[in-house]
Design a protein around this nucleic acid. Structure first.
Lengths: 210, 210
DNA sequence: ACATGTGAAAGTATTCACAGCC
DNA sequence: GGCTGTGAATACTTTCACATGT
């Protein structure tokens, strides 16, 4: 029994969370599905339906208590604790992820970095000593790593991901602009701006020639 | 008549393209929907259905000619020409996008970079002279910019995006981890690793406590 | 009066299964 | 035999609309 809750619903929860955080900063206390929907270009009904998969968080006639709903969503998404993350590949892209704090978010801690290039191994980048990828399995165990970020060159993606999967990792964030296969029990999310750009040009094209 | 072709289909075309490019490198000449499906963890039927929206590209009993299908998809997606792109926000993240060549892809050319910080304006980053955001409208016209990449701090996202929209841009790639609203005729895609991570923790959580 | 939560209805997307062809 | 392209069938999502509660 994996989950009877649709994947699309899970994907929207972080969006709700983001707006709730914004509303918290605006010192709002209560929000209606109407208002949330307006901010996200979604129908109020969809938001209510999504939330109803997890419980009854609202008050009729009033709406949702922002602080409370935010906490509920954090619980549901598993953001009420820290997650240890390893970075695989410390080339240009990997360095950018470390240096520029592209994941600067409380819940996610990059605690180790790996590469296969002997020139990189042993060097210090943003406070992390780069380790040999062969040590991944050991470090995963000793540090409690549960998520890997893969940022290797396209030609090595499959190799890197196979290695990560062999270490028992079940969640991969893949920055490499390349296709890779994982077993069905492993979650892999792609972060590839190229894919996004390519869908946008499709729509732009239709704009110029109707 | 915007498009009777479902959005999900458009989103999958770049995935097909990616595999076709990989197959080209492997010197394959023909591929079946079966094989494509196996590589992408999709059913062959879905791939055939998706492609059938655009025409008949296969040969019964054989499959699809890789080079030809690849070219067709590039045409369909509008990748058979160059696109001029502007970068909005040259802070840490924006610099990483420029420096680390995170968009190193033939079809997309970052031809201008903008900021509002007087300290940044006039400086040279990766061969681009940073301009005042106020000049965006003029540069969009003179350089034929059609896509903007927004990489500003969360607090300024809405302001930056409003400015971009006012300049007539219809496609925005938003790197900022923050919510923003755009008119319905503007396409905005988010590139936010945080959202991806947050959906993964949901599933990891369920793994440890079944 | 206003807003939630939810079955039922409408609308989309995916998969099946087979005719037609190489 | 193998594979495409596609209407029909199934499965999934979203939206509607209203009973229920404040």
């Amino acid at each position: 029994m994996a989950s009877q809750i649709p994947d699309v619903v899970i994907f929207r929860l972080p969006l709700y969370l983001r707006i709730l955080t914004l509303l918290t900063e605006e010192n709002a206390e209560v929000v209606s599905s109407q208002e949330l929907g307006a901010r996200l270009w979604m129908t109020p009904a969809q938001i209510r339906k999504d939330l109803s998969y997890f419980g009854k968080f609202g008050k009729q006639g009033k709406g949702y208590n922002i602080a409370q709903l935010r906490e509920e969503l954090r619980q549901i998404l598993g953001l009420n604790r820290e997650w240890c993350v390893a970075l695989i590949g410390v080339g240009r892209l990997g360095k950018a992820i470390l240096d520029y704090g592209m994941l600067a978010l409380r819940e996610f801690n990059i605690v180790a970095a790996f590469d296969i290039d002997p020139h990189q191994i042993g060097r210090n980048v943003s406070g992390l000593m780069i380790q040999d990828l062969a040590e991944l399995a050991d470090t995963v165990k000793s540090q409690g790593i549960e998520i890997c970020i893969v940022a290797v060159p396209p030609s090595q993606v499959q190799r890197a991901i196979d290695c990560v999967v062999d270490c028992g990792i079940k969640a991969i964030l893949n920055y490499a602009p390349a296709a890779a296969r994982v077993p069905k029990d492993v979650r892999m999310q792609e972060v590839d701006p190229t894919l996004a750009l390519q869908t946008m040009t499709y729509h732009l094209k239709s704009l110029s020639s109707p």
